[in-house]
Design a protein around this nucleic acid. Sequence first.
RNA 1: GGGUGAUUAGCUCAGUGGUAGAGCGCUUCGUUCACAUCGAAGAUGUCAGAAGUUCGAAUCUUCUAUCACCCA
Length: 1054
Amino acid sequence: MAMDKTFDAKDAEPRLYAKWEEAGAFRAGANARPGAETFSIMIPPPNVTGSLHMGHAFNNTLQDILVRWHRMRGHDTLWQPGQDHAGIATQMVVERELAKEGNVTRREMGREAFLEKVWEWKSQSGGTIMSQLRRLGASLDWSRNAFTMSGAPGAPAGEEGNFHDAVIKVFVDMYEKGLIYRGKRLVNWDPHFETAISDLEVENVETPGHMWHFKYPLAGGATYTYVEKDEEGNVLFEEERDYISIATTRPETMLGDGAVAVHPSDERYAPIVGQLCEIPVGPKEHRRLIPIITDEYPDPSFGSGAVKITGAHDFNDYQVARRGGIPMYRLMDTTGTMRSDGKPYAEAAETALEVARGERSLSVDEADAINLVPDDLRGLDRFEARERVVEQITAEGLAVMTQESDPRLGKAARTPLAPEEGGEDRVEEESLVPLVEAKPIMQPFGDRSKVVIEPMLTDQWFVDTDKIVGPALDAVRNGDTRILPERDAKVYFHWLENIEPWCISRQLWWGHQIPVWYGLDLSAPDFRDQEGDGALDAVELGELLIKDHMVHAGEVHHCAADFEGVVDAFRLELADTPTPIDHARVIEVEDKAAAIHALAESLAQYNVTQDPTQLVYPVWRDPDVLDTWFSSGLWPIGTLGWPEQTPELQKYFPTSVLITGFDIIFFWVARMMMMQYAVVGEKPFDTVYVHALVRDEKGKKMSKSLGNVLDPLELIDEYGADAVRFTLTAMAAMGRDLKLSTQRIAGYRNFGTKLWNAARFAEMNEAAGSDGTVPQPTETVNRWIVGETAKVREEVDAALDAFRFDDAANALYRFVWGKVCDWYVEFSKPLLSGTDASAQAETRATMAWVIDQCLLMLHPIMPFITEELWEGLGTRDKMLIHSDWPSYGAELVDPAADAEMNWVIQLIEEIRSVRAQMHVPAGLHVNLVVTDWTKDQKAAFARNEALIKRLARVEALEEARAMPKGSATIAVGGASFGLPLEGIIDVAEEKARLEKSLDKLAKDMRGLEGRLNNPKFVESAPDDVVEETRELLTAKQEEAAALQAAHARLSELG
RNA sequence: GGGUGAUUAGCUCAGUGGUAGAGCGCUUCGUUCACAUCGAAGAUGUCAGAAGUUCGAAUCUUCUAUCACCCA
């Protein structure tokens, strides 16, 4: 067979992948030895809308390495594939598609039809990432591909899995255990998609913004002495004030302020704490008053030190408001528009005022019902409202003023002012302008919608994480689950120790609809059926509804896996209504409005017909769906068929390793830990390997807007999957970001070519395709390379065991290129082409074995080229992917052979170096003279003469008493060699070379002697270190002596 | 503001107490029968700075500077 000069990745990769897949090579348990230990990895599910990016390539390369490595070791291995349904992203993609096609909106279509579209889209485009992972060579068991929405109502054929059942079951179970509740809390609200979103879907971006400074006048014209002091207590500034100064980046939220807070230690405001101040916006006649309170949150050194508290629109304020019992007034609707519902402003403000005065209090829901947006601002966009608020305050003269030249205004400053009191300026001049600082602010944007996220107080479902966080923390603390690198365990602890309730509802359609049904709250315990006839006439019905208030304002709700499951619970709700209403048929309707309508209609009809069988009690299902992360949180068990006790679940759970990015430690890893413990009471994985980010070569995060994105598929096209994989692996130092450059990838592509050509050489010399038997050669060269192979096997296993992927890759790189190609292949040439038949045979066998070992050990990192060579080099029982990973070790190392070959290598390198520096023509063979060597060295030379001569271009060896004149001298391991170069040598140049070497030796020796002359070193350092140092010094001294002599000879010469 | 980490050759990075390393790039040489996607040789470092612990520090401690990321 004549091999090509290079590996054709484009041709081979798809062919080999198909071959593996057809052979079922990736199947769970493939190549497992009987009774083998199991090894399982769950893929972090990519979005079903997603396509492969560099992070995926990195993440999946590492997983594939582990999986292939374990599979080759005969372990019962599962790499579980799958995708998550990515609620918001997928819904957005499909809506966009709809818009392109025919301008039908989701709402126009209706929920059912829309979901049908989503499934349709999924069946067409959902497989993209799967085929891309195949390009990378990922050996996932595709027959088990999972999807977080499989088995959901409306799922088409081919999506019959039971993930949906698992998700719903977990929700119901957790609800029943009291771990899930409905409540009003502040969440990240996306005004574009009109849904709550997770922190992960929020991008905080530094944006040019403004900080406005306003005066909140004290109620009733009260005044106080405002005093500012320096650190020593000297008064810097003092004045009478009738206001407190507030800075804000979001003036429109002032409308919802519930208080002004200052730090308890802030003496400047101590005189006015407890007083009321006025929000300087809104109609003059209904100005709202709010209390000045103390809280730890305000930073006295920032701004004026006083903070306005808008509990319903800011996360920090929310905490302060909760601590201080401050009402939270919501100002916007779901689209981020200023509210226009509820009572007129005058009435709302009056209520708020009563609350501020302590005359009444509001429940959270009552506060939420109050609309404190002034009538003229109702219905405005939030940013427009901001402008109007600023205008109104400024017009009223309640903006803090400053000189036009104030640098904080962001304009060119003429005379910079010393900042005092957070920068307020009191110089009275005619050119005063409102103090509006131009400053960058961190602003939250929806990562999909790109609109500004609004913290909003809304009704949502929450997991009471406090109740389930314990086992997740303990597991990592006591080592049941290990997080690598260790630093990331700290991140994990930090987050879980400060965990907040987890908002799991989303106002979307694509997802697992929450299995909760609501009904109108009906009861009339005091009603007496005076006729006692078990029927209700018109009069009685009227009394029921009006006098006994049968229909209450609130709602009741019940949770079960399906509608049938809640019917009984709702019947019980009717128990305290009169017959026959208490026997009404429970039916499901669309929503609350439909329920009211259906109930009214039913009662009306009953009134006419007196037919109790027509009475219905309508209930409606919660329209919201669950956060995608809620379903992803069940990934380890859900993919294995839970709640059914499948054999796979028994075998592969808990899983062995999770490999994932640091950015989702909180969102996914921590939640899987909590969920698995909460649901099945077990850890989801033994080890979590957290990897860093792939960046561009300048260290910038790859992003579409920067245009520095490297597409892994393009890279695979250009360099081959193996090169991309090897690069990522070699750069995978634990916990460090990768700065990826194409140059580096090209370098590792070259490495593949190098391996290819070494194999090609072996094949040409009939030294390929071993049967796997470890050779037991007699030739030193062969004994040496067998030992080197054994050493690297141990190194690679140790590295992979410790998740040191880079160490494994680099060890193999050094071995294959630096040992096998640079030396062993060269050393083998005289033996392979020589006349000694037994040496030739043994070398062929050894080389065949060594090359095969390279293929075996490189396979997990470079699966394609190694499989191709494996097939090409010999007749094999199994494909490489299922071949046996080696297990030999140090017992194959022959120390004598090791020492001898190292000496030979050093000699060759020295000769080459001298030749190059003395400008000996590259092709010229020269003689070598030896004046001094040991018996062993002589024997070693004799054994390796052929290859030394060949590699160093030596014509012949002469033994001599003294070095001939004009020789260049070489000292190797105590032996003195020389190249007689009279006529060729440049004496001055050779002297310079020797001097340089001697200088370095002298420096080294000084250091070594310094240490050895220090009695404390000899006393306290370990014996082997002292011994090593002594030996090193002796060697240096010998070498120096030889070079010294050579230098002397040259000096005599002239 | 809080936390985590980084700072080592021109570049990208290994190196967790025992004389500073790799890859890439650079310079010179090379059409040697595996490979020019190659080979040979070479140059390049106050290991960010300061102080400490130690017989010995790139490595441990403290401080400083700069940068990055995460959380507020």
